[in-house]
Design a protein around this nucleic acid. Structure first.
Lengths: 231, 231
DNA sequence: CGATGACTTGAACGCCATCAATCGCTGTGG
DNA sequence: CCACAGCGATTGATGGCGTTCAAGTCATCG
């Protein structure tokens, strides 16, 4: 289904296992909202989230922001196959990352040609995520986008039946190309229509999906108004 | 600038030169609107446009269509790094392509490790095109999108100062995530405002850009209404 | 020469952005 | 300990932009 935005995590090479055997790996901690690397900065390292969450974004000339991806524990980011990063990366919450010098990767490709293939596999996975995302941004309504987001997150960070979102409404909005008020409205509409409920949480970031099948159907394009009402 | 959608053609490996030395290359002709390969079909070949133009698209479940890219002479397409194509490819006009068996590429990577790197380079180029396109679809107005499209095409297929578009308004609309009527309206608005003019052509596909700098500025996000009027 | 396809243009509606107000919680300082 | 500022989220009101529906033109083709 085109709306499943997350890439199968089992297909992602783990930094240690598949790229592993590398000497120069270190861990580092970033506090909430700290910048990990900047757009157009030198791409000296690639990263893997150990704990926490990371957003990668681009700023447009008028101040609008596009978030390209959210990176959760296990995810690899900062792989640009060039000398410069194409996104800025920031910690959404206090976050621990593992990092590997790109130079040592480059060196490793000399002795281990399979390494290049791993890079190709990861880049292809990125490409597929972006290709799926483009369908969302190009053609879908606000409701479809938010439904797709919830389905993605339900797959990626559901734990004990609960989605604990690390990011705020604005981050979600900038990921989906919407106003943050619209994201808020859609969340509440889903709640009123019985698709989800919020746990006790002042910031409304703990979500239980009650009707995943219904959300998946909403995500798919609609012809009629269905039985869904925003009011 | 993020709005330049085209990848620098000089950075693309040419199928013959960089991937070359391969025995199993053939040429093939497709007539207008013929399918070259189908989404989810086996990815047995990769392709290079010799003459003509190709569009790659995905169909959504309700019949809406997303065009991911237009491929012009010299461009390589159908490179999916997997066993199946992720797009459908069709000839926009009568088109000649060169094709290479993927199997022979795979074989070549064994004797020539640099080949994998070429594939990685091409995949990264695709990724960058999609990343740029996503900014357009996620955040920009119809005017910005059409301006960006014209700038892209001005860079890719201007010849003797004239852009001869191979695709119709609907193709452009499905590439930009707009209704085809909106594309038509924007084209005419640009004409009325002196940004371009049409050559004598019943289908209005021969365009001369009169004010590329102005279009580039329009493409960039706007705060005010500027001096541009749709009426 | 009627039919078809590509494009343009008009009119009306509806979705979502924008602006604005409010609420609840957190944390900080007096 | 309490007052208050500040942030995140919600909710309402309004308007604009782009879609949708519709009609009409022109060229091409069977």
């Amino acid at each position: 289904m085109f709306t499943i935005l997350s890439t199968d995590p089992n297909k992602k090479p783990r930094l240690v296992s598949e790229l592993g055997g590398l000497s120069h790996t270190e861990e580092f901690k970033y506090s909430k909202d700290a910048e990990i690397f900047g757009e157009a900065g030198p791409a000296d390292y690639i990263y893997q989230v150990i704990e926490g969450a990371v957003r990668t974004h681009k700023l447009l000339s008028d101040g609008r922001r596009h978030i390209g991806a959210f990176h959760l524990p296990g995810d690899i980011f900062g792989l640009d196959n060039g000398d410069f990063h194409r996104f800025t990366a920031e910690a959404i919450v206090d976050t621990t990352v593992r990092l590997v010098k790109r130079q040592s990767l480059e060196r490793a490709t000399k002795t281990e040609p399979a390494m290049v293939r791993s890079l190709l596999t990861m880049t292809t996975a990125n490409l597929q995520h972006v290709e799926n995302h483009i369908l969302l941004l190009g053609r879908n309504t606000a409701r479809e986008r938010v439904a797709a987001f919830l389905i993605e997150m339900n797959g990626r960070l559901k734990s004990a039946g609960v989605i604990a979102l690390p990011m705020n409404r604005r981050d979600i909005a900038d990921y989906l190309g919407l106003a943050f008020e619209t994201v808020s409205r859609m969340f509440r509409a889903f709640e009123r229509n019985g698709y989800l409920r919020f746990l006790i949480d002042p910031r409304q970031r703990q979500i239980v999906i009650l009707n995943a099948a219904g959300l998946t159907k909403l995500d798919a394009p609609r012809k009629r108004k269905d039985t869904f009402s925003v009011d």
